[in-house]
Amino acid sequence: MVPTAAAETKRINGNDVYYEYYLNTQSCETIVLLHGFLSSSFSFRRLVPLLKNDYSVISIDFPPFGKSGKSRNFHYSYQNIARTIIGLLESLNINNFNIIGHSMGGQITLNMLHYRPDLADKAVLLCSSGYLSPSKIPLVFSSYLPFFHVFVKRRLEKSGLRTNLENVVHNRSLIDEEMENGYLQPFLDENIFKALTRMIRDREGDLPSNVLREIETPCLLIWGEHDKVVPLRVGRKLHKDLQHSKLVVLKDTGHLVPEERPAEVYHYIKKFLTG
């Protein structure tokens, strides 16, 4: 049976949260997907078709990314984003699940495991961010300037979409027009830059080692050998701090592992969840 797909938006914690829900009535397990910084559910486009045959899948655009709300009144801290995602799942009556977080989505996943260790059965961290400090004070102060969001927009435009994509994949031949359009789409909404300005001041530091060591949820870490965004050394340190974790390193792979190695990622996820 083909899983039923639904794309909806719910108002949670004062912001609109967009999600895509693939309900598999033949499975009793649910997987929640969280994308990375400056990304969206689009980054899981090659992994979802594999997962939804075995599990119910919920892919979430967490604010302010993708098709979710970009309110300037929302508090864009990891902790608040994590609580917002939990609120969405509770509104859908999903109380037990496995969670997969890529990059920044991995750090939000770790926050969820820390604040609500009862919810997720297992977690998969794909090139998860880790050990980052909060924004520096001068940058935080600058974010209050009336037109700082214009600076944020210009900074992203200067780096360029093509350059950014080349930085996150090892095999550059994967970059095509569909990929470029998919990652560009969320930034056609001007409000994203104002929300990113708010995120600069709201984002707290990543969870420290002493907190990570308290997490008891089994975790699978999957890393690209040539990750330039979150280097493999971060994965090795997370593996050391997370007491119940396993690390898998994919050769000839960069940061965007769901795009570059969907079949291998799916294989390791399924093995981990059924083991």
Rank of each mutant, 00 (worst) to 15 (best):
215 I>H: 11
32 V>P: 01
150 V>F: 12
208 P>A: 03
167 N>K: 15
225 E>L: 13
132 L>R: 05
109 T>N: 09
261 R>N: 07
187 F>P: 06
198 R>D: 02
256 L>F: 15
124 V>P: 04
241 D>L: 13
62 F>E: 05
254 G>E: 10
188 L>H: 11
13 N>G: 11
32 V>N: 06
93 N>D: 11
105 G>W: 06
201 R>H: 00
25 T>D: 07
84 T>S: 02
93 N>A: 09
66 G>Y: 07
106 G>C: 07
125 L>Y: 08
216 E>C: 11
110 L>G: 04
141 F>Y: 04
160 G>E: 08
42 F>G: 03
228 K>D: 12
241 D>C: 13
62 F>P: 00
263 A>L: 07
157 E>A: 14
233 R>E: 12
206 D>Q: 06
109 T>A: 09
113 L>G: 12
54 D>N: 15
226 H>S: 13
237 K>M: 14
128 S>H: 06
159 S>W: 15
79 Q>M: 10
28 C>H: 13
80 N>L: 05
132 L>H: 14
149 H>E: 02
206 D>L: 08
78 Y>Q: 05
124 V>W: 13
90 E>V: 00
175 I>D: 09
135 S>P: 04
35 H>E: 05
4 T>E: 09
164 N>A: 14
72 R>F: 09
272 F>N: 12
127 C>L: 10
184 L>G: 10
11 R>P: 00
6 A>W: 00
229 V>C: 06
49 P>C: 03
143 S>G: 08
242 L>G: 04
150 V>G: 00
130 G>L: 06
64 P>C: 06
257 V>L: 13
157 E>T: 14
266 Y>R: 00
22 Y>C: 01
198 R>M: 08
13 N>F: 09
23 L>S: 04
182 G>C: 10
45 R>C: 03
7 A>Y: 05
171 N>I: 07
196 L>T: 01
21 Y>M: 10
39 S>G: 04
235 G>K: 02
57 V>T: 13
47 L>I: 08
63 P>A: 14
226 H>C: 12
259 E>F: 15
6 A>H: 02
165 L>F: 12
264 E>S: 13
198 R>V: 11
20 E>C: 10
252 D>W: 03
26 Q>S: 14
143 S>C: 02
176 D>P: 09
192 I>R: 01
47 L>P: 06
126 L>F: 09
87 G>T: 09
104 M>F: 07
61 D>G: 07
90 E>D: 14
91 S>L: 11
29 E>R: 01
253 T>I: 03
274 T>V: 15
110 L>V: 03
11 R>G: 02
92 L>G: 00
222 I>S: 01
137 I>P: 00
53 N>P: 05
155 R>E: 05
